[in-house]
């Protein structure tokens, strides 16, 4: 067993089940801590037949080989699989960091039922007044530009490290607006290393299909273009829109050009994440005048959930 793999027994007793999906179930793993992961961990147990056949160890190893600063940045922008979990010599699941509490919204559903929702980026695409009525935040244009800027930075870091996200969609990235508006990629199963096969078959979510069949960094850039378009032009039918003109009102001419090129059917036309990053960086002085500057988050801590020593319950770290 190598350093990127641990036995199921090393996890100790599992905690509450947090979710269930097509691929498997996710549990809190409160008894285990790792030196290289700042916060609490969860165990994703694959359903029988859904264990990714190969490639998982490459994705886990890639993170462990990064220098500390890069790895900490990676951990802030993606819920990366940090260890492979094996039982009786076979892969049973992966260990991942718990999504920090700042990416959740406590709200009331229209029926009055209280709920805690992951702030999926789909909530950025709907009409802001509607988002407010549904108990979700309605970011300003300035905040939306900052979210896009952070997503571009995340994408740039992944691409620079030869990674392909593959499946960018309305649900697998989440956002926060406190401190510095930012995004986090929450489903990393489809991520692969350039030049290697994907961990799971890379699929396109409906309404996110790129023009070409094979998923590459170029299709990531196309999908990022769709994200920018839908985030900056929210409202009815934004979630299915591919018309760059939709974001004209909030994009400077340079941004319009970038967006049109991102959605080009010729992969070579599309700007890189770094091109986008530079554009959004250039907007920042203007944006700062429009909105109160927020202090950057402390670089050393990863606020999230912690166990209350008295009650033993999970509480949000402050």
């Amino acid at each position: 067993m190598s350093t990127h793999t641990i036995g199921l027994s090393a996890l100790g007793p599992l905690g509450e089940q947090l979710g269930v999906g097509g691929q498997g179930r996710v549990f809190l793993a409160p008894a285990i801590t790792l030196d290289d992961v700042a916060g609490p961990l969860v165990y994703k147990q694959y359903k029988p037949g859904h264990v990714p056949p190969h490639g998982l160890s490459a994705v886990v190893s890639r993170r462990l080989r990064m220098d500390v600063a890069t790895r900490q940045r990676l951990d802030r922008l993606a819920v990366w699989p940090v260890r492979i979990v094996e039982q009786a010599g076979a892969v049973s699941g992966v260990l991942m960091p718990l999504i920090p509490g700042q990416f959740f919204e406590d709200r009331y559903l229209p029926s009055g039922r209280p709920t805690r929702s992951l702030r999926e980026v789909q909530h950025l695409f709907i009409d802001p007044d509607r988002a407010l009525r549904l108990g979700m935040p309605a970011p300003t244009t300035a905040q939306r530009l900052l979210v896009c800027r952070d997503f571009a930075a995340a994408l740039h870091l992944l691409h620079r490290n030869d990674l392909v996200i593959g499946d960018i969609n309305a649900k697998n990235a989440v956002f926060r607006l406190d401190a510095r508006p930012s995004v986090m990629i929450v489903d990393c199963d489809a991520i692969r290393i350039k030049g290697a096969a994907a961990v799971v078959k890379q699929l396109n979510a409906p309404d996110w299909e790129p023009p070409e069949d094979t998923l590459t960094q170029a299709t990531d850039l196309y999908k990022f273009g769709l994200f920018v378009l839908r985030c900056l032009g929210p409202g009815a039918m934004a979630s299915v829109s591919r018309d760059p003109a939709r974001a004209n009102a909030v994009l400077a001419p340079e941004g319009r050009t970038l967006l049109r090129a991102s959605l080009s059917h010729r992969p070579a036309d599309r700007p890189t994440a770094q091109d986008w990053g530079r554009f959004f960086d250039g907007l920042q002085p203007v944006v700062r005048r429009q909105s109160a500057p927020a202090p950057p988050p402390p670089a050393t801590s990863t606020p999230g959930w912690k166990r209350d020593p008295k009650t033993k319950r999970w509480v949000q770290a402050t």
Binding site: S117, Q122, H123, A131, A236
Partner: peptide, 8 residues
């Protein structure tokens, strides 16, 4: 309300 883009 939990999958609001489906309203499209």
């Amino acid at each position: 309300a939990q999958a609001p883009i489906l309203a499209d």
